[in-house]
Computed example of a mutant assay.
Amino acid sequence: MTKSELWFTELQNENLTIGLRINKILHSEQTEYQTMDVVETEQYGTLLVLDGCVMTTDKDEFVYHEMMAHVALHTHPNPKSVLIVGGGDGGVIREAIKHPSVERAVLAEIDGRVVEVSKQYFPNIASGLSDPRVDVQITDGIKYVENHPGEFDVIFIDSTDPIGPAVGLFAKQFYESVSRALKDDGLFVAQTESPFINQDLIQKVQGDVRDLFPITELYLAYVPTYPTGMWSFTMGSKKYHPLRDQQPIRVTDTKYYTEQVHKAAFALPRFVEELIQK
Rank of each mutant, 00 (worst) to 15 (best):
A96S: 15
N147M: 06
S127V: 13
V117D: 09
D111Q: 07
I142S: 07
I125G: 07
V115E: 08
E95I: 09
E109I: 05
P100H: 13
V145M: 10
E109A: 03
S130V: 10
I142K: 14
G91R: 04
V92Y: 06
I97R: 00
E95G: 08
N124T: 15
A96K: 12
E116N: 13
D140G: 00
G141N: 06
V115L: 11
Y121K: 12
E103Y: 09
E103P: 09
E103C: 12
A126Y: 11
I97A: 00
Q120D: 10
I138H: 12
D89P: 04
L107F: 05
A108M: 03
V136S: 03
E95Q: 13
P123R: 13
N124E: 15
N124S: 14
P149Q: 14
I142D: 06
S118L: 12
A105N: 04
S101H: 09
P149W: 14
L107V: 08
G91K: 08
R133Q: 04
R94E: 11
P123D: 14
E116K: 12
Y144P: 00
V102W: 07
H148Q: 14
S101G: 03
S127R: 11
I97T: 01
A96F: 15
R113T: 10
G91L: 07
H148I: 08
R133N: 00
P149D: 15
P123T: 10
K119G: 04
F122M: 07
V145Q: 05
L129M: 07
V92C: 06
Q137H: 15
G91C: 07
N124H: 12
Y144M: 05
R133Y: 02
G91E: 07
G128R: 02
V136D: 08
I125H: 10
V136G: 05
Q120F: 04
P132V: 04
A126C: 14
V106L: 01
V92S: 04
E146F: 09
R113I: 04
P132Y: 07
V115P: 12
D135W: 01
P132L: 07
G128I: 03
D135Q: 06
L129T: 06
A126N: 06
G90C: 03
D131I: 11
H148A: 09
I142H: 08
I93H: 08
T139K: 09
N147P: 00
S101D: 07
I125Y: 13
R94M: 05
N124D: 14
Q137K: 15
I93G: 07
N147W: 04
V102M: 06
I110P: 02
R113L: 07
P132D: 09
A108G: 05
E95T: 08
E146A: 15
H99E: 08
S130Q: 07
K143I: 14
T139G: 03
R94D: 12
K143P: 07
V102P: 06
I110H: 01
Q120I: 13
S130A: 13
